[in-house]
Design a protein around this nucleic acid. Structure first.
Lengths: 231, 231
DNA sequence: AAACACATTAAACAGGTGTTTGAATATTGT
DNA sequence: ACAATATTCAAACACCTGTTTAATGTGTTT
């Protein structure tokens, strides 16, 4: 094969990512995967030694990409602000990176779906790699960035703050995904749109409004809990 | 049958709830269910007309219970405070009801696991019942309660606030469940405990600290975004 | 050119899936 | 007590699952 298109392996990875994100690991058969990637069923086992391993490589690829993008964005911010970013700016990066990773672009629709599924009980933990290599570095970088923005904060306080911010992010992303999923059931969709105001917007608008809200809400909380000691 | 114990139907419901919550819908076979409930495999189809329907009845039962408990608690608060609750008290109810429903008691460990799975794409929407009968009423009640606490707030602003609070709640609950799930992998567990401070506590302590934090964080945000106009 | 490792293929494998059947057993109403 | 209904049961059904096999094709190396 000359490479008239992508390699079998990467076609399989791509198809797997979108199918796993859309339907969930258990609801995608190897035959379905093979058909979508236009490869033989045996290719999965030949290239990945099993379905489980294919799943692992899928989330690994996406998470590495997401992690590096996020750390780079944080570095940029620190450079631009001469090492003195505002909390709102740091939180802005945190929110925007997640939102874009989860909702923007083709295939990226999958990031947080995969994340959510990875977090569900029963999934193997990839031998600790996932947490140590993916979550901890990003978490640590944001922790340090917030402390440079507000040196008076204790590390534990920062942990609580990040948790509150990330919780909001995931929730708003989850809402959008559920909204998408409800397109098939117009009745429920109407009720949902009425109950959750910003959901009737387009994706970019929704994303922007949510980002703005989380930043405002969270910085307001921080400012109120730990009043800034500006000269 | 004299009722030497629970009926076949309710034994099946109980076993199904705990197994579905623990392992996920697709990872529980009907034979496994039947064994756990000590009934014949055909009982599932006889009493529930299929596995999917059994799942629906399981979450319906739990959600009705949770909804009624929450609405009652809100009523109690309004009665105790003579119709003038504080925002912190309303949010306190919101947080505590979720935490208890998700983490306390036997079998209740399942509530938010079920919720999370129900929210995942691909699950049928129960014909709109779920959202209209379960989510909307609770959501509306809290919305009204917050407005009585802070009459100057617009309904849309309240929606944003509730979303931020619920997002935090779910996230902290998810963390605890993931912590539980990691008991089997001590290495990852250690890293996680180090990164997420309050996770090394016992469940009641964790629950209390989280509740306290969410209330403080959220009311701080509200107070800062919409300064109280007290006489 | 032959030898070699790598990749792809169709077919088969062993086992598990949700569901249905039809007979046996309880339970209920009269 | 009898008849009618509701429940339980072991066995079978048809199908789908992830994985493996052994043969064939492909490109590279010697």
């Amino acid at each position: 094969m000359t490479e008239d298109r992508q390699s079998t392996k990467s076609r399989l990875l791509d198809a797997a990512e979108s199918l796993f994100a859309e339907k969930g690991f258990e609801n995608v058969s190897i035959r379905e995967l093979a058909a979508a990637a236009e490869v033989n069923v045996a290719a999965v086992n030949y290239h990945f030694q099993g379905k489980e391993n294919l799943f692992h490589e899928v989330i690994l690829r996406r998470f590495v990409f997401q992690r590096d993008r996020t750390l780079a964005a944080l570095d940029d911010l620190l450079a631009e602000t001469g090492g003195h970013p505002g909390v709102d700016q740091v939180i802005g990066i945190l929110v925007r990176q997640h939102m874009e990773g989860a909702l923007a672009g083709p295939g990226s629709t999958s990031f947080l779906s995969l994340m959510a599924r990875q977090m569900q009980p029963g999934h193997s933990h990839m031998g600790g790699t996932f947490f140590k290599e993916m979550v901890a570095p990003v978490y640590g970088a944001f922790s340090r960035a917030i402390i440079t923005a507000r040196p008076e904060l204790q590390q534990e306080q920062v942990s609580w703050i990040i948790a509150s911010v990330v919780g909001q992010i995931h929730h708003f992303i989850m809402r959008w995904q559920k909204r998408q999923d409800m397109e098939s059931d117009p009745e429920s969709l109407q009720i949902m749109l009425r109950a959750f105001p910003p959901l009737d917007l387009s994706l970019p608008e929704y994303s922007e409004r949510v980002t703005e809200h989380i930043i405002r809400f969270s910085t307001a909380a921080i400012d109120s809990m730990f009043p800034e000691v500006t000269p």
